[in-house]
Simulated scan of single mutants.
Amino acid sequence: MRIATIGTGSIVDEFLQAVEQVETAECIAMYSRKLETAKELAEKYKIKSIYTSLDEMYQNPDIECIYIASPNSLHFDHAFQALSSGKHVICEKPFTSTVEEAEKLIALAKEKKLFLFDAISNIHLPNFKLIKENLALLGPIRFVQCNYSQYSRKYNQLLNGETPNVFNPAFSGGALLDINIYNLHFVTRLFGSPDDISYTANKHPNGIDTSGVLVMKYPNFISECVGSKDTQGMNFVLIQGENGYLHVKDGANGCRSVFIHTNDQEVNLNAQTSMNRLFYELAEFEGIVQREDYSSCYKLLEHTLEVVRETVKARTDAKIVFAADKR
């Protein structure tokens, strides 16, 4: 794929590193509101074109795919414009702010016969697939715990009276959509949709969640997902069954290493050779596009849509309102 990017944050840098590792992918253009903001990344990865006009970039016939890493609230508009211009789309998490936005993008992609991907990296990792394959060793699952806590430097700005995008309801920010969403994708991909969801959050006076606990109730077990941007913590996943437990060291985000404990024995699993977690999702997306495998794309979108529904239910429970909810 010949790719263009929207955004210049650290996740774009990581994505461009992944592009370099996928032989059949190439980034040929970048968009930024200000030319100087994109120059450093463009020079680092030898990207020839920088656009300050999205319309001009979308009109470039050499660009096949748009990678979107703009502020959360802009994901829908940027993806809709890209699809309308005949481009495939890889959209960073969170996919959209609302269910309606997700449904519109999926319908448009199908209508245009284009590929649309949710760039949630952890469900494409080799170690995630090993986890899924080995769950049966644990016997009946009774409890799942996930913790992804990462103190945000932007939180200091919030405490100082500023409102950075990641903590702004107008930009669909907050801990749930920025960090706990990795846990949500992880659990949903393994076990399907829960019967019920509740979300208890620490909230800033502006209404945004700076940390919180998401509880997912299944017929025979409970999953507890913690996401925090206002504290440091020990990141981990524990999946506990009647015959043993599975420990994902450092959490669901990267699935760096997996330990299975059964019958007083510990087995370590690790199939990941690249430290760049975005490499695996990009390689999978590229393969789907090359094979014109719309069925696989649509199955991934079914999962994405369900997770969007879950985030909206959680926000509703915690009374977290975005500007996008009012559109």
Results as ranks from 00 to 15, higher is better:
residue 96 T to H: 11
residue 90 I to K: 09
residue 111 E to Y: 08
residue 77 D to V: 03
residue 79 A to Q: 04
residue 109 A to Y: 07
residue 93 K to D: 10
residue 71 P to V: 00
residue 107 A to S: 15
residue 68 I to V: 15
residue 70 S to C: 12
residue 81 Q to V: 04
residue 63 I to G: 07
residue 101 E to I: 06
residue 72 N to V: 04
residue 92 E to I: 09
residue 97 S to W: 05
residue 81 Q to I: 03
residue 76 F to D: 01
residue 74 L to A: 15
residue 107 A to C: 10
residue 70 S to V: 06
residue 65 C to P: 14
residue 111 E to H: 09
residue 77 D to E: 14
residue 85 S to V: 02
residue 85 S to Y: 08
residue 69 A to C: 14
residue 62 D to M: 04
residue 86 G to Q: 05
residue 103 E to G: 10
residue 93 K to P: 15
residue 103 E to N: 13
residue 115 F to G: 00
residue 96 T to Q: 09
residue 61 P to D: 01
residue 71 P to G: 02
residue 65 C to H: 09
residue 107 A to I: 07
residue 84 S to W: 01
residue 93 K to G: 11
residue 94 P to F: 06
residue 104 K to S: 10
residue 86 G to P: 14
residue 104 K to R: 12
residue 94 P to H: 07
residue 91 C to Y: 06
residue 75 H to E: 04
residue 61 P to L: 02
residue 113 K to F: 06
residue 72 N to L: 00
residue 62 D to N: 13
residue 88 H to P: 15
residue 75 H to P: 12
residue 94 P to M: 08
residue 67 Y to Q: 13
residue 65 C to F: 08
residue 91 C to Q: 13
residue 113 K to C: 09
residue 98 T to Q: 10
residue 93 K to C: 11
residue 60 N to S: 06
residue 89 V to I: 08
residue 81 Q to N: 14
residue 114 L to W: 05
residue 99 V to F: 12
residue 102 A to L: 10
residue 108 L to T: 02
residue 113 K to L: 05
residue 82 A to V: 01
residue 86 G to M: 06
residue 69 A to R: 05
residue 109 A to S: 15
residue 105 L to Q: 07
residue 91 C to F: 08
residue 67 Y to A: 15
residue 87 K to G: 11
residue 113 K to Q: 14
residue 105 L to P: 14
residue 94 P to D: 06
residue 83 L to H: 02
residue 93 K to Y: 10
residue 103 E to F: 08
residue 79 A to G: 09
residue 67 Y to F: 14
residue 94 P to R: 05
residue 104 K to I: 01
residue 99 V to D: 13
residue 80 F to A: 01
residue 84 S to K: 10
residue 99 V to H: 11
residue 82 A to D: 03
residue 88 H to F: 11
residue 110 K to F: 08
residue 77 D to P: 01
